[in-house]
Amino acid sequence: MQYKNLGRSGLKVSQLSYGAWVSFGNQLDVKEAKSILQCCRDHGVNFFDNAEVYANGRAEEIMGQAIRELGWKRSDIVVATKIFWGGNGPNDKGLSRKHVIEGTKASLKRLDMEYVDVLLCHRPDIQTPIEETVRAMNYVIDNGWAFYWGTSEWSAQQITEAWGVAERLDLIGPVVEQPEYNLFSRHKVEVEYLPLYSNHGMGLTTWSPLASGVLTGKYSKGEIPPDSRFALENYKNLASRSLVDDVLRKVNGLKPIASELGVPLSQLAIAWCASNPNVSSVLTGATKESQIQENMKAIDVIPLLTPDVLEKIEAAVQSKPKRIDSYR
Score class of each variant (00 low, 15 high):
147 F>A: 14
144 G>S: 09
56 N>Y: 11
120 L>N: 03
123 R>G: 04
90 P>L: 11
137 M>S: 07
103 G>D: 15
51 A>N: 10
93 K>M: 14
45 V>R: 00
129 P>G: 09
53 V>N: 10
58 R>Y: 08
63 M>R: 07
67 I>P: 00
109 K>D: 13
102 E>G: 08
54 Y>L: 05
153 E>P: 04
72 W>F: 11
149 W>Q: 04
45 V>L: 03
87 G>D: 12
52 E>K: 13
39 C>M: 00
144 G>F: 03
99 H>Y: 12
130 I>W: 07
119 L>P: 02
50 N>G: 06
104 T>Y: 11
148 Y>M: 02
153 E>A: 09
117 D>W: 04
63 M>Q: 12
151 T>L: 04
80 A>M: 06
118 V>M: 11
72 W>P: 00
84 F>G: 01
117 D>R: 02
115 Y>A: 11
123 R>N: 11
99 H>P: 02
88 N>W: 12
145 W>D: 07
140 V>M: 07
87 G>Y: 05
81 T>I: 11
99 H>E: 11
53 V>E: 10
149 W>M: 09
44 G>T: 05
49 D>Y: 08
127 Q>H: 15
67 I>K: 03
131 E>W: 09
79 V>K: 00
78 V>Q: 05
103 G>Y: 07
60 E>I: 12
104 T>G: 09
63 M>Y: 10
151 T>H: 04
131 E>S: 15
48 F>W: 05
137 M>I: 07
150 G>C: 08
40 C>D: 00
111 L>E: 00
52 E>H: 12
95 L>D: 02
37 L>V: 06
109 K>P: 07
122 H>G: 07
123 R>F: 14
87 G>T: 07
51 A>M: 12
111 L>D: 00
47 F>K: 02
147 F>M: 15
39 C>G: 00
40 C>G: 01
137 M>Y: 05
81 T>R: 08
87 G>H: 04
145 W>S: 14
97 R>K: 08
128 T>K: 10
132 E>H: 10
105 K>P: 10
88 N>L: 14
76 D>V: 06
117 D>G: 05
59 A>R: 02
94 G>W: 00
55 A>Y: 06
89 G>T: 08
90 P>H: 05
133 T>A: 14
136 A>M: 13
82 K>Y: 06
140 V>N: 05
88 N>R: 12
102 E>S: 15
106 A>H: 06
93 K>D: 10
41 R>P: 04
37 L>I: 13
72 W>N: 06
120 L>D: 01
43 H>D: 04
40 C>T: 00
